[in-house]
Computed example of a mutant assay.
Amino acid sequence: MTSSLRSAVLSRSYTLSPVQGAVPAARTWVRQMLDRWGLQHFTERAELLVSELATNAIKHAKADGAPIRVTLTYENHTLLLEVHDRDASSLPVPQQPVIDEEGGRGLFLVEAYADRWDVKTTAYGKAVRCELIDGEPT
């Protein structure tokens, strides 16, 4: 007999203020959720990705101190990480990093560590989304 049950969907969101300490809090939350779900094999990449995306949201999104929301969803062997902010007018654009510059590597790292990524405008701003897929090399 074949089971007709669909795979479980795991999903949680975390809201943080765009202040100093928010990025480490986002990394900790991601690590705790992945531990709870038994998906520790995603932890290293997911922590790096949430660090870059939350930093970009805090630094570049001109949202007047509006909160940032991080969402994790796991379904069909794919972990979706989303960072939402309220600024739909400044969409991230990948740039080639300059060796002597301190910043500018965020989306370069996202492209390197995520299996797929994109930006989606929403009713309240934008969401930068990354997928990590079980069994696919990075």
Rank of each mutant, 00 (worst) to 15 (best):
L48M: 11
Y14F: 15
T15F: 08
L107S: 00
D87W: 07
G135C: 04
A66D: 11
N76R: 10
A8V: 08
I68C: 09
L10T: 07
W29G: 05
V110M: 01
G106Q: 00
T121F: 07
G38Q: 13
R27I: 02
A123G: 05
R129T: 03
L5R: 15
F108E: 06
V50A: 00
V9D: 13
R31F: 10
E52P: 00
Y113I: 03
V19A: 09
K62C: 14
T78F: 04
P137T: 10
W37Q: 10
A66V: 11
E75N: 10
E52N: 00
Q40E: 13
P18N: 03
H60E: 01
R31D: 13
T55V: 04
A46P: 07
V93W: 07
H60A: 02
A66K: 11
K126W: 01
A26N: 03
A8M: 13
D64S: 13
G21R: 13
V19S: 08
R45L: 09
T43L: 05
G38D: 07
W117A: 00
K59H: 14
A61W: 08
L34C: 06
V128Q: 03
R6D: 13
N56C: 02
P92K: 02
T28H: 15
L109F: 04
G65M: 09
A22F: 05
S4H: 15
F108Q: 12
A114H: 08
L16I: 15
